[in-house]
Design a protein around this nucleic acid. Sequence first.
DNA 1: ACGAGACCATACGCTACCGTATGGTGGGGA
DNA 2: TCCCCACCATACGGTAGCGTATGGTCTCGT
Lengths: 182, 182
Amino acid sequence: MSNRLDKNDWVLAGLKTLSRDGLEAVRVEPLAAKLKVTKGSFYWHFKDRKALLTAMLSLWKREATHAIIDEVERRGGDAKTRLRALFEIVLQSNGKLELAIRAWATTDKTVANTLKTIDRRRIGYTENLFQELGFSSLEANARAHLAYHSLIGQYAMGHNQPGLGPKAQFDAVFTMLTRKPK
Amino acid sequence: MSNRLDKNDWVLAGLKTLSRDGLEAVRVEPLAAKLKVTKGSFYWHFKDRKALLTAMLSLWKREATHAIIDEVERRGGDAKTRLRALFEIVLQSNGKLELAIRAWATTDKTVANTLKTIDRRRIGYTENLFQELGFSSLEANARAHLAYHSLIGQYAMGHNQPGLGPKAQFDAVFTMLTRKPK
DNA sequence: ACGAGACCATACGCTACCGTATGGTGGGGA
DNA sequence: TCCCCACCATACGGTAGCGTATGGTCTCGT
């Protein structure tokens, strides 16, 4: 058995403590301690702390860009079905990692730009679903933003029990969002 | 002219850098430099760094609990008017300070509890307005949560230009939230 | 005007972490 | 087998910030 680590082990450990304790907690020596090695290992794999952070962001970006949308499309169904699936899937996560990255973005422009790109993509996808449902461009846009903001808001507040919360409330919200105007 | 500082000057400076650069940036020596004094001053006013943080939280709590709700009630009007006023007022802020405090709350239980109390109060107030509009308890609750989550979500994303954003979108959202079910 | 106390400067020791330099080790390919 | 090199330990010097100790100075009340 080989206890030796590779670059990815460090990135994973970094994302884990980022999610748990925030950016300031991902420091090389404490991280090394958790991995039962010393920082000698770290500096073999990475130039410096910043290089680790960059790698962490890039891994998260790959994941965050595709994972959920792909899963929704895999399940298929009409627009309303996919919309409901989308909500159900994103509410399964407690959003702790994403929240930590969002906090990180407030002091790092690169992270902020990455996040902006992802936000746009996800909102755009949601907006398209609403348009498929027959909403005008404006109405779809307003609904997609409302839904997405609400999701991020739930991440930002506790929301610690993953899941949908009370079903009646969820249905009320879903009905509101998918109800045609006029 | 007296350049001497009192406790409140430190708290204000602390909140300012908390809002700008996050919790980790509010440290006594850099803060002293910004205030053109040395930490000798700081440790006269506060026992330690934690005491400053506590004072900051407590000041913010006082402000955040009453300010907005009081302003809405001062303006008066029927429930729909007050609801619209509420949305307009809260969207005037870019929410940077509140966002920083929310990030802080992820690693500090005291902060988390303070925030939970405030969240409940604000959601409760909003829920009451929806009930005044004739919504059932369940419908009012769902709408208040949706609106509040959405607000926090906007804070958590850039939203850097204070203001309401495109009026048409705002109206679409407001219409959606205040439209009776059935 | 003068003492007291509020406010501040300076100097010190301590800890946590960064990044570098250098040498050790164990497992897989020639 | 043995040697190479990917991976790791150790030791070092440097910086930033914490909190303490001690003494200086400005200002206000009497």
